[in-house]
Design a binder for these strands. Structure first.
Lengths: 104, 104
DNA sequence: CAGATACATAAGTGTGTGCTTATGTATCTG
DNA sequence: CAGATACATAAGCACACACTTATGTATCTG
């Protein structure tokens, strides 16, 4: 898992769609394919790229492999972005509100 | 400028290096090349990609073209990341501190 | 105006990427 | 054990990408 792995993984729209789907709840590779018009090998290859970037992690459950979001990859992006936070001051207040919400 | 433009622009390590250099202060294309072992056309092409992604914007000054960070591209990444903020709760407090600092 | 400087664009090339088809591996079921 | 199911991996192919060399365009200077 390198910075390059993460950015390259997110550079593909299909992979971002897969990631987004997983963000709404973990599921196995077959379930991920539902409504996505993508072949089984293509999905498997995309998941391998996302795994290498630690954007996703697997957990084998018998015959199935359950996938879920791995926070590590996201954290790397967040860290990268934080370095340039000086450039989006207008959005600071909005972000603060978001964080306030996260406290429940 | 689309989400795809931004992620694809950041997928290249040379472009991230260019962006990072610009983040420490605007400069022209020739100055950007200093210490970067990159040809003039390659730099120009990378800057075109970053421009299309609105990660960078230009301002012609006579014979020179001054480049600087454009917040719009960064904001798009920040927005994308915000959708998945539920996955890095451990870093919320740290982020809050960062935002507090930004208030000066 | 002529040359130099700063940058952009065009065209060509090797390599990487995302797909395909085919096959392999692991687990479950009868 | 045999077949089915879930997924991974291998190999090949078309296309995108990052580079190169060559040339174009705009601005400055003498």
């Amino acid at each position: 898992m390198t910075e390059n792995d993460v950015f390259r993984a997110l550079a593909d729209p299909t992979r971002r769609a897969i990631f987004e789907k997983l963000a709404s709840g973990g599921m196995n590779a077959s379930a991920l394919r539902q409504g996505m018009e993508i072949s089984q090998p293509a999905m498997s290859q995309h998941l391998a790229v996302l795994r290498k970037a630690r954007l996703v992690r697997e957990e084998r459950q018998g015959r199935f492999v359950n996938y879920e979001v791995d926070p590590d990859g996201l954290a790397l992006i967040a860290g990268w972005l934080a370095k340039y936070r000086a450039y989006w001051p207008a959005r600071v207040e909005a972000l603060k509100d978001l964080l306030k919400d996260m406290d429940q």
